[in-house]
Nucleic acid binder design. Sequence first.
DNA 1: TCTGGGGTCCTAGGACCC
DNA 2: TCTGGGGTCCTAGGACCC
Length: 411
Amino acid sequence: MASPRVFFHIDLDAFFASVEQLDRPELRGRPVVVGALPGQRGVVSACSYEARVFGIRSAMPISEAYRRCPQAVFLPVRMERYLEASRRVMAILADFTPVFQQISVDEALLDMTGSQGIFGPPAAAALRIKQRVRAGTGLSLSIGIAANRLLAKMASEKKKPDGLCEVPPGGEEDFVAGLGIEKIWGIGRKTIARLEELNLASVPAIRAVPEGALKALMGRACGSYLFQAVRGIDPGIHAETARSHSISNETTFPVDTADAETVEKLLLELSHQVMFRLLDEGGSSRTVVIKLRTADFATSQAQETLPHVLSSAEELFSVSKRLLFARWDRRQALRLIGVGLAQVGPAGDEQGELFADASGKKKAVEKAVLTLRRKHPDRAPVKARFIEPPGGHLPPGRGHDTMPDHGTHQR
DNA sequence: TCTGGGGTCCTAGGACCC
DNA sequence: TCTGGGGTCCTAGGACCC
């Protein structure tokens, strides 16, 4: 007979802000907001619990955060540092089980099924994890324990910060019944609004609806998801199976622009960033995606699948440029542009062949650029024709290369 | 409130093939 | 000339999460 499964969901508390407070003791006990700086376009990436007292939250516009608490310490995102701290925490967590899934910079899922013989009851193991992470890194975290990933995830939310919450075996339905629907993972603003319209804005109300009716009202996938989630059944969040994925980089202009050359320059840089990441992970893709957001915040995407695998940043640039300029109504200023690759899979033989002949040279150039970027991550590659004559200057705000930002919520 | 950046999964319609 | 049903690939958009 199989023993009941035991999952731990680990969530680092106010992660980015906690790392800043760790590095700078004078910030401890003070409201700290990590993200855009006041005056810039952007949002809160993470904030300390002291800042939350003022109503500051992740994803809030920075202007709003400043209005609520001008005396807070506003800091830029130092992703390299957070990634380093994250790696140290994850290494400790991985010591506790071979079945370990990192979900984001500040979250992990541990399958602790059958670990009782080594660590004792789940709660005792969880306390050991918290102690070891605190001793090893100075960071605090919250742990949710349950029989599946969905419940473990919702449990870790419940007692933050520095919390421990266990859903006892058999207590699954009661646990979910005690939650507001906004606490259920996967149910966001739009779904709540729709459920309210239908007078179904509570767990018991949703439970009373048969699965078929729920699917008819909310759509097949959403209905089926809701039916299971309100009963504490994991509909399959965070599957382990590796699938094709996507890689993208996007940037909001400091000021909206309708200048083609400015747009093109950024597009070139984004193409390099994306291709760099593709080569770095040894992936390949045939599908180019561009994204644009106009001054009125309307956002759209266009994509094109090529008959062959992308072979260079130059090619990515030329395809994305064609797509973007076909989409862009030049009377409208742009707020943001993005470049991405979809359906990224492992690089196969087709790529080897491709690089072996015609594009071998390009690939060599690409590799050289990659190496350069590793050595000088602060410098963006610029095409010769974009380099300004002596005395000229590079466009503002585009002079540096950023690591991908891994999110906002409750860091 | 004047709204970042990086992702995932789902849907619906059209093209094309058998 | 009008008619199937199923499958795959592609595109655009939407919801959600960190």
